[in-house]
Design a protein around this nucleic acid. Structure first.
Lengths: 292, 292
DNA sequence: CCCCATATGTGAGAAAAACGCACATGAAAC
DNA sequence: GTTTCATGTGCGTTTTTCTCACATATGGGG
């Protein structure tokens, strides 16, 4: 059952349109398409029972009713926003961080306790994502991404280069018949090779680097960390970024007999051009542990 | 892609919960289940990054953050609602009329169709009430009241004098043993007498007029129109204003063997000193049908 | 201590709302 | 007449919100 209450989203779309003077600009502010705004406004006219805009399509003019309605709405939404922002920043300082999911799990989270110990009053809120980030439209303070760049209007702080190479478990390594095989990358092709849908080019790229034929995929995983778990379990060889397996290497859970090579991409911490103090604090800490 | 905007629905659920003191009541106001309100509030806590309620589940207590947030929200939503309602009534001409509930039911509503036929573009919105009306504080355009006057700053248009007298059903009338009894008002005291809490003085007043002793109350009703229904059903004799039984008399459902006498009070249509055109139109119509 | 009443919390699926995409349409400018 | 600009819209997808049914927590009363 639909509640008989105020169409708040439509009112917000209308108010933004009045403030900006046209639906397209309001759509930008709201992070939706102009079609969504258009529909909201027409729906609002149905509810209110009065037209809000008139005139030619490319130059809509607000009606008297619209002009009369807007000031109250603008003040109300301003008041709500102010109150909400005040509340959000009253209790705890929240830092919204968008990070690649595997990097989050395998590199960032294990180190995050150190940051929390240094800055206990900042709450880091992680969101797993790898889509392009637009700080004007999304409520993130920091985004960690990997790529060749450039990074648009965002401020990019390089963390570390993306180094990739084959990794396998010690048990799998021992299963190689000839111990001398570890001198020859081609020996790996005799083992099951693990792939992930999100990085299907990993093996072809590595093989091209080595001047080797591309092996037939032994297993394809939906998620990168599934593949890494499989590698750790000895199910095969995977091409992995060094940063994602650094802890496993250090712990002896994985071996990287042929090391890692630059993929041409870089891990970066992105912020708005004018980051908040907490965002700057966090990214400075990221750079520190990235080089440590 | 998710828009990074204020969670308006959640804020509204929260605000309603604060105003009502518990989620279940807020849910009633919003027309949803308590589960929906519960989820909205917990989601809002996630977004804001602060708890809004604490304490035992069956007696949640707002946090300081919640208390600080609510006033702005309440004012903002009130403002939005006021502005929206004002806009909705701009195009359609709405006339807010406050009227005695029994008069509304038994006299005004049966005649209202005639007014709508004459003025189809005016929507008459009725509110049953008998409290004193203050046009500077209440959003009424017209109020219909009965009393001795005076009527304060309001402009009062007299409609008709309040005439009261005993009424009973034909069946009850026939049950009187002596047909000549209808010449003697005292004969009525041999029948069950009906009273209403809101007009306990009706019978004493009438008896004083007739020089008769006050009868023992046979039945007392909470509402006037309940009493009138009982009289029509032959359960007893009631003292009624003529205007409220005019249609029943004309239809033969009730009899008034001893007629009606002025009670000293007058039915009036009240408006602000400067009534709107629609209010003037309506009160003119009221006077016309009152004398017709 | 048990039972009952009251109020919130939640899994899962359904319903509703909102949206994106791609294109259509109308009007003004050139 | 063409181009540009801005809104309008069909349709399918996504997201949000909700319901339902039950679970859980807590306090009060006997």
């Amino acid at each position: 059952m639909k509640r008989g209450t105020l169409p708040l989203n439509a009112l917000r779309a209308f108010e933004a349109t009045m403030r900006h003077g046209q639906m397209s600009h309001a759509a930008e502010e709201l992070g939706v398409t102009h079609g969504a705004v258009s529909r909201q406004i027409r729906g609002l006219e149905q509810v209110l029972g009065v037209p809000l805009f008139e005139g030619p399509r490319n130059r809509l003019v607000p009606t008297d009713a619209a002009r009369a309605l807007q000031p109250s709405l603008t003040e109300a939404f301003d008041r709500i926003e102010t109150a909400v922002l005040r509340t959000m920043h009253t209790d705890r300082r929240v830092l919204d961080v968008s990070c690649l999911s595997t990097l989050t799990m395998r590199w960032l989270i294990p180190r995050l306790a150190a940051f929390q110990a240094e800055q206990p009053e900042i709450e880091v809120r992680l969101t797993a994502d790898d889509a392009p980030v637009d700080f004007t439209r999304q409520r993130f303070d920091v985004a960690i991404r990997v790529g060749p760049g450039p990074w648009g209007a965002a401020r990019a702080l390089p963390l570390f280069a993306d180094l990739t190479g084959p990794v396998l478990s010690p048990a799998l390594c021992d299963s190689l018949r000839d111990p001398a095989a570890l001198d020859d990358p081609a020996a790996l092709l005799g083992l099951p090779t693990l792939h992930t849908r999100t990085r299907m080019s990993a093996w072809p790229d590595w093989c091209a680097q080595q001047g080797l034929p591309v092996p037939e995929a032994a297993r394809i995983f939906e998620h990168f960390y599934f593949m890494l778990e499989a590698a750790t379990a000895g199910l095969g060889v995977a091409i992995a970024p060094e940063v994602l397996v650094r802890d496993d290497l250090a712990a002896g859970r994985l071996l990287a007999p042929f090391g890692f090579r630059p993929s041409g991409q870089t891990y970066v911490a992105l912020t708005p051009e004018q980051p908040s103090r907490d965002a700057a604090c966090f990214t400075t800490w990221l750079q520190r542990i990235a080089t440590g």
